[in-house]
Design a protein around this nucleic acid. Structure first.
Lengths: 183, 183
DNA sequence: GGTGATTGTTCCAGTCAGGAACACTACTCT
DNA sequence: AGAGTAGTGTTCCTGACTGGAACAATCACC
């Protein structure tokens, strides 16, 4: 069928399957709203690079700027939809990759004062709370359009997953803090 | 003091603080054993690139291959230790980045049959189990050298963190599967 | 003494992030 | 009307990093 693309291509292509067409700028915004929590939100420059590549492969098409539009909107093509579906069905998913700066720092905690490691974890708790609030807001915005069969059913499920993940991490950190106190 | 380096540099530098000197190859192995679970294990090529950079900054030094040694071993310098400690103490950690192919696929689950999404999650459960076993083994290998004050105290804490994270994810996936069945 | 696995290192093409730069539109304040 | 500021929209460049290929030396084993 079609050669392999980087996962980011499929991710952005997927963001175009919710029924509307977007400019590169808008696509980046959508990535910031959703993709960011489970993948990465590609850099602006990368979004445009991907749109070019997807266009070259015929997976998206740009609707040229009309007289009243100053920029081009991209929409997924039938071929794009087919390719994306085939990717979902055939390509086995990789195991998740976690880049966790806090865990990394704790790993070499023997270099610093234990108090510092505790402060690190406490600050991470605060960051988790902030991140949770952001995701909660996204989840709220899907409310009412997420019943089985509706458009935002799956985004909503994934948002719930994300919220539980954040809650779980908080619990773990709190336990770690207790263990660090036992000295 | 010293200019900023990419996080990967500090991560590899950190792996050299456990009291031994390593070849690039051995450093990669250590990264595969530990770093992989909370960060990324850099590609071989990247390990050597980092060692060059760290050497150029005077943060590690290569002990030239003796007559009986065929390759050079790297060790952290005093300056390296100071720089790493300063980084730990001063640079605020970024929020973790998660690249989760399974969550990404579930996000656009409306493109495929619901049965397929369920199979996706079930396969992920199996992958989680496998990953957990790997990490469990690492954790076991630290046993007995991880009391407060000992060398592997912190790696051990982080391994426990990782294990709990994997367990938490399993619980979440199981709940998601139940919700997907309710249709 | 051969053969395959492990150790050890280098090179290259391509992916990607992040920031700077640029331009145009829209809004408010004066 | 003009000035300032925020948001929209896009491009370019540098450097980080991956993954794979290629290569060589050593070790274990039969």
């Amino acid at each position: 069928m079609s050669q392999d693309l980087p996962t980011t291509s499929y991710a952005l292509l997927g963001l175009l399957t919710f029924g509307d067409d977007l400019t590169g700028y808008e696509l980046k915004q959508r990535a910031d709203r959703t993709l960011r929590f489970y993948w990465v939100s590609p850099a602006m420059s990368q979004v445009y690079t991907e749109l070019e590549r997807l266009t070259a492969h015929g997976l998206v098409s740009a609707r040229a700027a009309g007289p009243n539009q100053r920029s081009s909107k991209y929409s997924i093509t039938a071929k794009g939809r087919r390719t994306l579906t085939a990717w979902l069905e055939d390509a086995p998913p990789e195991f998740p990759v976690l880049k966790h700066p806090v865990a990394l720092r704790l790993l070499i905690g023997h270099l610093v004062d234990p108090e510092h490691s505790k402060a690190l974890l406490r600050e991470h708790l605060a960051a988790l709370t902030a991140r949770r609030a952001e995701l909660e807001q996204v989840r709220e915005s899907l409310h009412g359009r997420d019943a089985p069969g509706e458009a935002f059913r799956y985004p909503s499920l994934v948002a719930d997953w994300g919220l539980e993940y954040l809650d779980g991490e908080r619990t773990i950190i709190e336990k770690l803090l207790l263990r660090l106190d036992e000295e």
